[in-house]
Design a protein around this nucleic acid. Structure first.
Length: 578
DNA sequence: GCCGTTTTCGGCCCGACTGTTTTCAGTCG
């Protein structure tokens, strides 16, 4: 995708300019343009050939010309020139916490240091203290920063970060004088991975809280400890930032600390045009300094004439304009979900029985649960033969007779999509199922055209209701396969096939931006957990996070339908093929 | 480099913490 390439170049140009100590607002313009290109979902080349690139927000005369240049020639001369003027590999230095562009520049110009390795050697030999503004303490801090880099500051997925955050919040609540606590930052926005953990607390005596926090058992090292703010490293190497404010400022601080940074910049710009100032203590009139609120988050938005914006939308991807126009989506909530479709049991590779899963579903208030164990060719997961599947169907029917009418188990299967898009059970078997999931579990390295055709053909099958984990990615383990999602979405739309947001925290597949694109194209989506045990039904919250970040409303999700509506939706595709 | 209920030039979000400063620059979020 050309727009990703151009966005990457603009981001790198921003880095290069920052390193040179260029005008910070110019740097921001490049970053903002890059972000807007990333979230733009239309046809960039069509826009360029119509000479309308400047209609994009953050793109003016100069950047429009650079985009044009890239689309015509495949390169941007200004970028190539900029790269040549800056020593290669120097960006490595910026990865060290505490080393910014100014320090990096000093290190390369005065000491010819361009790698972290060289920096470490120089710091240990006390060669840095020769630099202006450097003394022993700063040298020491750089060495500590290098250690952090070596330990690897890899991002943590939500499935680990969220439970951990809840433990830390529970600890904070035990500190005397703490009246309110919350997560903030990317965790509260439900980003799929978290770099560091941001927590917020309200107290009339902030410094008592920060000092108790720094003495907590999970705290391995204190990175910074002030009156109202402290940063620590846990023994697992995770950075936790805690901010403590007066109860009266809790909402303002939560808004500020939740971000994203880009969202806050937009909001504060909007405020300053109205003669207002927003900071973490509240919202104020610039003239006279009168405070207009800040105890609740909604105070801040109200002051600039906006409704409260859900955290998942705060990425500066159009949410502020939507709020202004009164067109924020009514995001799907946990209570809107009436069932789950992707459930494994002891009949294949799950660890709980049909009945146990059903009861867990009922106790969540679900109206239906589709049991979808693996199909015959997936031997490693104890895929079911046709005979075993038929037996399971009988057992499900018997269970349904015993269940209250308000709840149904659906007879389903997660059927492998074989080569050339053939399904792993014959159609006469699929026809007897209530719900059919199709997934790819083999041939992950197939070329884009091959794997895309394979999936698109499978969706032509009238019995395939839901395409599961459409890219096959496993964060930190396996890259997505080379599937062309745009073509998959087109096919999903024309065939009436739903596409999954798999809630398993390592998958989150589709991801937020892809799910938003699918919705824009009119594709029906579903949040399902891929549960292999009872407790995994809870993981729906991670999928819900993705759905909300994708701006989805209940009407966009198959599992917000009533059982009758769901059956009708499935029947429509089956009829169309007949 | 972008952009306009303050503007086509002069602004551009705002504050905490650290180290080395006797008034502030650099970094971070």
């Amino acid at each position: 995708m050309k727009r990703h390439d151009i966005a990457a170049i603009f981001n790198e140009m921003a880095d290069l300019l920052e390193f040179r100590g260029d005008n910070p607002f110019r740097i921001r313009a490049y970053r903002r343009a890059a972000q807007n290109l990333e979230s733009f979902s239309g046809d960039l080349e069509a826009l360029a050939s119509a000479g309308r690139l400047q209609e994009l927000s953050g793109i003016g005369e100069d950047l429009a010309r650079k985009i044009d240049e890239y689309l015509r020639t495949g390169a941007i001369v200004a970028f190539e020139q900029l790269k040549r003027r800056i020593p290669k590999g120097v960006f490595e230095l910026l990865e060290v916490p505490g080393v910014g562009p100014k320090t990096a520049k000093l290190l390369t110009e005065r000491l010819h240091i361009t790698t972290i390795q060289q920096l470490e050697t120089a710091a240990k030999a006390h060669r840095l203290s020769r630099l202006p503004g450097f003394q022993a303490k700063k040298e020491e801090n750089i060495l500590k920063g290098i250690q952090i880099v070596h330990r690897g500051r890899s991002r943590m997925h939500l499935g680990i970060a969220l439970p951990l955050a809840q433990e830390l919040l529970a600890f904070l609540k035990t500190i005397p004088g703490v009246s309110r606590v919350s997560t903030a930052g990317s965790l509260r926005r439900m980003r799929e991975t978290i770099g560091d953990l941001d927590l917020l607390a309200a107290s009339k005596h902030p410094s008592r809280v920060t000092s108790a926090f720094a003495k907590a058992p999970f705290c391995a090292r204190v990175l910074a400890a002030g009156q109202t703010k402290s940063s620590i490293l846990t023994s697992e190497g995770l950075q936790v930032d805690l901010r403590v404010v007066e109860p009266d400022s809790f909402g303002a601080a939560l808004q500020y600390f939740t971000g994203s940074k880009e969202h806050n910049v937009r909001l504060r710009e909007l405020a300053s045009r109205q003669g207002l100032k927003i900071n973490e203590y509240g919202v104020f009139r610039i003239r006279g300094g009168r405070r207009l609120g800040g105890r609740e988050e909604a105070d801040i938005y109200r002051a600039v004439g906006l409704p409260w914006i859900p955290p998942e939308l705060r990425e500066d991807v159009g949410e502020i304009d939507a709020a202004k126009a009164g067109r924020l989506p009514s995001l799907v909530e946990a209570e809107d979900l009436r069932g789950d479709f992707h459930i494994h049991t002891t009949w294949s590779d799950g660890s709980d029985s049909l009945e146990a899963m059903a009861k867990a579903g009922m106790s969540r208030g679900y109206r239906y649960l589709a049991i979808c164990d693996h199909s015959q060719s997936l031997k490693v997961a104890h895929g079911m033969s046709v005979a075993r599947l038929r037996q399971q169907m009988k057992n499900i029917q018997a269970l349904n007779e015993r269940f209250p009418a308000s709840f149904r188990l659906l007879m389903g299967a997660e059927v492998d999509i074989l080569n050339e898009g053939k399904m792993d059970y014959p159609n006469e078997v699929l026809a007897d199922l209530d719900f059919v999931i199709g997934s790819v579990h083999t041939g992950f390295t197939q070329a884009e055209a091959v794997i895309t055709r394979r999936i698109v053909r499978a969706m032509d099958n009238p019995y395939l209701t839901l395409l599961a984990h459409p890219t096959g990615r496993l964060m930190g383990q396996r890259e997505p396969y080379a599937v062309n999602l745009e073509k998959v979405f087109q096919a999903a739309k024309t065939t009436g096939t739903a596409v999954e947001i798999n809630a398993y925290p390592r998958r989150l597949d589709l991801c937020d931006t892809a799910a938003r694109r699918a919705q824009e194209l009119g594709v029906m989506l579903a949040v399902s957990t891929d549960s292999h045990s009872l407790d995994q039904l809870d993981q729906v919250r991670f999928g819900l996070g993705v759905a909300r970040r994708a701006w989805l409303e209940p009407r966009h999700l198959l599992n917000c339908l009533s059982l009758e509506q769901l059956s009708a939706w499935i029947a429509r595709k089956r009829r169309r093929a007949a």
